[in-house]
Design a protein around this nucleic acid. Structure first.
Lengths: 202, 202
DNA sequence: CCGAGAGTAGACAGACCTGTCTGGTAGCGT
DNA sequence: ACGCTACCAGACAGGTCTGTCTACTCTCGG
């Protein structure tokens, strides 16, 4: 009875990481135990601990994987002008944040559960944020923005704000405020377009 | 040996709440157990459970108390113009966030550990955020701002962004970006003054 | 003086946590 | 056919969690 034709399924490590990602994101990290993860992933405990020597390693892998997803998503976006790309990134975040499963930014939430800045999980979060800020800065530079450094920091502020607000406040109002702020920060070239999933207005 | 002259000390409930506030904020909520709190507060377990029927009640009291602090802090600020008051509020947040003990926004962090929006803790957080947005809106209205509703939402974005950024990124750069964004959102009347604790520039 | 109220100290129950270990099975390369 | 690797199932240890309970002490109002 044991060990079905599991070539059909994903390999154990991927199943664990997928399950952990879902549970960590929707329920929080400290609230989800190993037993629950291996049960829902259909994986034996020994197998889990072979792939992830400790729970913290799993958490770190979760954060790193989230970062990889986002990098891939950005890399796979249609290459329009830098400005259009920036606006598309923020539109995408607003769309995602308006969905029913949205639970805030995975990195911010993880950081809230790992206070120590020297912890590997925090390091992974810091890596992601460095990448993100560099992305903003390069897009701004590519657009010929006169103060890409400062403006990239402002976009980080906006990004963090919308991550939190979409979770805790009314997403429709947050979205409108994001569009307005983005226009104010980037200068009113072409306002963030109207193709959002939720009808724009207010 | 038991029961010293504890009229000199704070009463038990206050000691518990004070200890819990410190530990919850600096180490996270799920990471801190009841045993630790009562030990550091110097309170018996039975006493604790008389004042707080469950840990969640304590957590809720922690959130409510944080909210009270902030309301009192705002109420106790010198009453200048609404605009000056707004700028002072953001300056205060930046000053606080530049300190070594800063660990992010207590409400955002707590929300990260309580995913269920119907949970009493989340309700308390929502109450605080409603108060905060109303405060922004009223100050903007008092200043005669043409679109206080929308701008209040933008200030919420900025507030959440700086709460996160001051914890996870370089506080000096975040502060500069906050000043810039605030000026952009509020319109360049009088830029946020230079009296910060950390030297302004970049 | 005496009883009520608030507090202290600590044992205890039952659940859950991480992490280890044993033992068995399925598939693959050689 | 053989061994290697990856996996499954589950028991187990040792600790920690929340919450309950017993037994005692101190203080104060009446």
């Amino acid at each position: 009875m044991t060990a079905q034709p599991w070539e059909s399924r994903q390999p154990a490590r991927a199943r664990v990481l997928e399950t952990a990602t879902r549970l960590f994101y929707t329920e929080g990290i400290h609230s989800v135990g190993i037993d629950r993860i291996i049960a829902e992933a259909g994986v034996a405990k020994a197998t889990f601990y072979r792939h992830f020597p400790s729970k913290d390693d799993l958490v770190r892998a979760y954060v790193v994987e989230q970062s990889s997803w986002q990098r891939a998503a950005v890399a796979g976006m249609p290459t329009a002008s830098p400005r259009a790309k920036l606006e598309a990134i923020f539109t995408l975040m607003c769309d995602f944040g308006a969905g029913p499963d949205y639970r805030g930014c995975a990195f911010v939430n993880a950081a809230a559960e790992y206070p120590d800045p020297a912890h590997p999980v925090r390091q992974a979060i810091a890596d992601h944020r460095r990448w993100l800020r560099d992305l903003y800065r390069e897009l701004l530079t590519g657009e010929g923005h006169p103060d890409a450094e400062r403006t990239a920091d402002m976009l980080m502020l906006l990004r963090d704000g919308l991550s939190v607000g979409l979770d805790l406040d009314d997403p429709v109002r947050v979205r409108a405020a994001v569009e307005e702020t983005l226009a104010a920060v980037l200068g009113r070239g072409s306002a963030m377009s109207e193709q959002g999933t939720t009808a724009g207005r207010r």
